[in-house]
Every structure is written in C-alpha cells, then in structure tokens.
C-alpha cells in the first residue's frame, strides 16, 4: 500500500527554507551572538535530512546535487588556506585580519577572515553529517 504523505511533503517544502534561513542566520551571527559554523552546518543538514524523510534519497540527491565527500575536502581546503594566507606574508599561521567597510545596502560592517575559517567548518560539518546519513541510508 502506498502511503499518502502529502501533508508532510507540503510542510517540508515550506519548512526547509525557514530552516536554511535560520542556519544562515546562525552562521553569520557566530562572532557576536551564539552560533557559528558548527551549529549552522548541523541545522543545514537537518534541513536536507527533512527532505530525505519526506521524499526519498534519490529525490534528495536531485534537489541537492552535491557529492558530500568533495564538500568535506573543500571545507578543509577553505579553512587551511585561511590559515595559510598569513604564512605567505610572514605572520604566524592562522593569524586573522579584520576591518570595517561601508557596504552599499547593509551599511557599516566589519569583515573578518575568521568567517572564512567558519565557512570551512560549516562545509565540513554538512559534508560529514550528510555522508554518514547517506551511506547508512543507502547500505542494505
């Protein structure tokens, strides 16, 4: 018998966007408030897991066509190059830089290279969680 989960699927379509927006907000607020790359990544993967539950693994792969193993690698690359950049200009490894900029719409904003490091953490966390869930889900 085929179950009819139209309510779950419709709710998912709305909820996924809200969850991802929440994840992005947490990611960017990490420097001043609670949050950061780790929670942001976990919540993003929670959104993808919700898609997997409401539909199935194949549909989820079609919606998010990413090889999560490469996502882990790119996250590690982003973080390590953020650390390596100061080495090139003679500062100790992982020295961070920040400054204040006047951006068009947002206004006065501080941009910090620690965000790039966090972006790496975010990618690795999404990659690792999704690899675990996907490979356990697929194996018979």
């Amino acid at each position: 018998m085929k179950t009819n989960d139209i309510i779950l699927q419709t709710a998912t379509k709305v909820a996924v966007f809200i969850i991802i927006m929440f994840a992005v907000r947490l990611f960017f607020s990490g420097h001043y408030f609670a949050g950061g790359g780790f929670v942001g990544g976990l919540i993003t993967s929670a959104a993808i897991v919700l898609i997997m539950i409401a539909f199935d693994l194949k549909t989820a792969k079609k919606i998010v066509p990413i090889n999560y193993r490469y996502l882990i690698g790119s996250g590690l690359l982003v973080s390590s190059f953020t650390g390596l950049f100061p080495v090139l200009i003679g500062k100790p490894f992982l020295t961070h830089f920040y400054s204040y900029y006047q951006l068009p719409i947002i206004g006065k904003t501080s941009l910090h290279t620690a965000t790039l490091f966090d972006l790496g953490v975010y990618l690795v966390v999404v990659g690792v969680t999704m690899t675990i869930i996907q490979s356990i889900g697929e194996s018979e």
Binding site: K91, P92, F93, L94, T95, H96
Partner: peptide, 8 residues
Amino acid sequence: MLTLDVSN
C-alpha cells in the same frame, strides 16, 4: 628552541 605562537 623554536616556538610559534599560532594566531599571533
């Protein structure tokens, strides 16, 4: 001995 203070 060489030391490196990571992140300065």
